[in-house]
Simulated scan of single mutants.
Amino acid sequence: MLTGFLLVKCHSLREDQTGGLSNVLTKAALPATILMSCQIPFNWRIVSIIGQSAIVSLLFMILTLVVSLLVPHIFHVQGSLKSIWIGCCTFSNILFIGIPIIGAIYGKTGLITLVTYNAFSNLFLFTFGLKLYSGQTQFEWRKLLLTPAIFASFLGFMLFFAKISLAGPVGQALTSLGNMTAPLSMLITGALFAGTDIKKVFRRLDIYQFCFTRLVLLPTILVPLLKLGIQNKVILGVMVIAAAMPAGAINTAMAELYAGQGERASEYVVSSTVFSMLTIPLVAYLSLFV
Rank of each mutant, 00 (worst) to 15 (best):
T196R: 12
I86H: 03
N43M: 04
K200S: 14
L278A: 13
A284Q: 05
G103Q: 02
E267Y: 03
S12Y: 09
I250K: 09
S83C: 12
G103N: 07
N93R: 07
L282E: 05
L21F: 12
S153D: 10
Q136N: 14
Q231E: 14
G262H: 03
V283G: 08
I86S: 09
R214W: 08
V24N: 00
I241S: 03
G195Q: 15
W44F: 05
M158F: 14
S134Q: 05
Q78D: 06
L65V: 01
L132P: 15
K131L: 04
L7C: 15
R204F: 08
L123F: 15
I150N: 06
M245S: 13
N118P: 02
P224F: 04
T273R: 07
S287I: 02
S165W: 08
A242C: 15
I86R: 01
G4D: 10
G107C: 05
L13A: 03
A259G: 07
T279A: 11
L114K: 04
T3D: 09
L7H: 04
F151C: 13
G135C: 11
L123C: 08
A119I: 13
A162S: 05
T273E: 07
G103D: 01
T175I: 11
M277P: 05
I101Y: 03
L63Y: 06
I97H: 01
A149L: 13
P246K: 11
I97F: 07
A162E: 07
V270K: 00
A253W: 00
L226H: 06
I94M: 12
I74P: 05
Q138N: 05
G171R: 13
G107F: 10
T109N: 14
V67Q: 07
S287V: 02
P219W: 04
L13T: 00
D197R: 12
A173V: 15
L192D: 13
Q138D: 06
L13G: 00
I50R: 06
V238S: 09
V274H: 01
V216L: 15
S185M: 13
K199A: 15
L225Y: 03
L35K: 00
S83D: 14
H73L: 11
K9D: 08
F212G: 14
A191H: 06
G103M: 07
T252N: 09
L25G: 02
T18H: 01
Q52K: 14
Q231W: 07
F128K: 04
G178T: 12
F5V: 00
W44H: 13
A243Q: 12
Y106Q: 10
A194R: 14
P31I: 08
Q17T: 08
I101M: 10
M180I: 13
L236P: 10
G103A: 08
